[in-house]
Design a protein around this nucleic acid. Structure first.
Length: 393
RNA sequence: GCCGCGUUGGUCAAGGGGUUAAGACGCAUCCCUUUCACGGAUGAAUCACGGGUUCGAUUCCCGUACGCGGUACCA
């Protein structure tokens, strides 16, 4: 039938009052035939018969009054030929049985609202009908965010990893990407809602307290991954080391670093968390606290290396070997004194020290790092790098 | 095609007849920092269009355009 009525003007013909009397159904067949057909093996479906020219209107909590003319909504199938109900019948019955007071769903359901409302009236009367709200859609770069598109936008669309049962294709979720649940919920909540103030960061408790339906937008919101990352960064900063530790531990473990010292881990987290946007960033931001860096950016210091610096670092090693207390502040003072004594500006040797300890040009204060990795490891890293720097000379 | 819902900077958005039209993300420049971040300052950038209504529309009304959604014996 679809084919028969399909035209260029109307690519999606409806089964409605205009065509139903031309179809072979219980309306056009006589009672006996219908009865006979139903009791033989002839497959059939049950449809809702939409009234011909009535207006169905309802009050949507987000959009206000919404109305449809029943002439343009089709006779939806309620019971399929295999005996299973369609969603349209199922939601209405289910919501009724569960005594649902508020039916909130996405805007993509708005066009089928008249079917559900009429069905509800026919089946259960109007008094216990839930209040309706159709939330704005979350849009991707090209329309509604959908499963099918998977990771093609370059950002996750699922809360957690999702494996397509048909193709076996794995789509990385927000969780695995390194998002905190606090951040994920927060960023979703403010996509289409705000509390009227300038606040954007909300804990779950605050959201429960502040959320109100009349501040929900009716227009769809395009998802901005950069802003999503910002929310996560803010939440990493907001949470303390204790709240972060088990997640960071997992990130490190996934990269082959088993943390045995919980106190050390917490100190490291406090030191580097300002530099992390995703939880996964904790690996590169903190691996050098737990393992000697493999890749050392010698190129950053080699060109300006000279004999004086070699002598300087050898003196630093001697000095550090003798120091009884191992505390960032003292290490820094000693380092600077030795530099002055060698006619070197601190700036000339600070970066080399960082490269030696960290491997690259990043990370928190270099003496804080030295303090945490300890005397033995600090000296070892300086010695090793020194060897490589002077190997050619 | 038809039906519905929308439209304030690139994105999220406040506001709602008279405003220098908030703020955030991102971007740019600068400051701070002997690294990278954080932070601070400054800047560029917005009311889709056309008609009404009005002394006055970004705001109210109507059209148009555009976007999105729906149009399955899917949900």
């Amino acid at each position: 039938m679809r084919q028969q009525y399909k035209t260029d003007e109307n690519p999606a013909p409806q089964y409605d009052h205009k065509v139903r009397m031309q179809m072979r159904n219980s309306l056009t067949l006589d009672g006996d035939t219908v009865h006979e057909l139903m009791h033989s093996d002839t497959p059939y479906v049950v449809r809702i018969k939409m009234p011909e020219n009535e207006t169905v209107s309802f009050n949507d909590m987000i959009r206000g009054e919404v109305s449809f003319n029943t002439s343009v909504v089709d006779d939806k199938v309620l019971l399929k030929a295999d005996g299973m109900p369609t969603y349209h019948l199922a939601v209405v019955v289910d919501d009724h049985l569960m005594e649902i007071s508020h039916a909130f769903r996405g805007e993509e359901w708005l066009p089928s609202a008249p079917v559900h409302i009429l069905l509800w009236k026919y089946l259960f009367g109007e008094d216990k009908m839930p209040q309706w709200a159709h939330f704005p859609l979350i849009l991707g770069p090209h329309g509604k965010l959908s499963k099918r598109d998977g990771a093609k936008y370059g950002f996750p669309v699922f809360a957690m990893n999702w494996k397509d049962p048909k193709t076996g294709e794995l789509t990385e979720g927000f969780k695995e990407k390194g998002f905190l649940p606090e951040a994920f919920i927060n960023l979703l909540a403010v996509l289409g809602w705000n509390d009227g103030t300038e606040q954007e960061l909300f804990s779950i408790g605050e959201m429960i307290e502040r959320f109100s339906m009349d501040r929900v937008h009716s227009a769809g919101a395009k998802f901005d991954y950069e802003k999503a990352r910002w929310f996560n960064q803010e939440w990493i900063r907001k949470l303390d080391a204790a709240a972060l530790s088990s997640k960071v531990r997992n990130v490190l473990a996934a990269n082959g670093i088993e943390v045995t010292d919980a106190a050390l881990l917490n100190k490291v987290i406090d030191l580097v968390k300002d530099r992390c946007t995703l939880l996964t960033d904790f690996y590169e931001q903190s691996s050098y606290f737990f393992a000697t860096p493999q890749a050392v950016d010698l190129a950053a210091i080699q060109p300006k290396w000279n004999e004086a610096k070699t002598l300087f670092f050898q003196e630093v090693i001697r000095n550090y070997q003798l120091s009884a207390i191992w505390e960032a502040h003292d290490l820094e003072n000693n380092f600077k004194e030795i530099a002055a004594a060698n006619q070197l500006k601190p700036g000339e040797v600070m970066l080399p020290l960082r490269i030696m300890l960290v491997g690259g040009k990043f990370g928190p204060g270099v003496f804080d790092i030295a303090q945490l990795i300890g005397k033995e490891e600090t000296i070892k890293r300086i010695e090793n790098t020194l060897k490589r720097l002077t190997a050619g000379h």
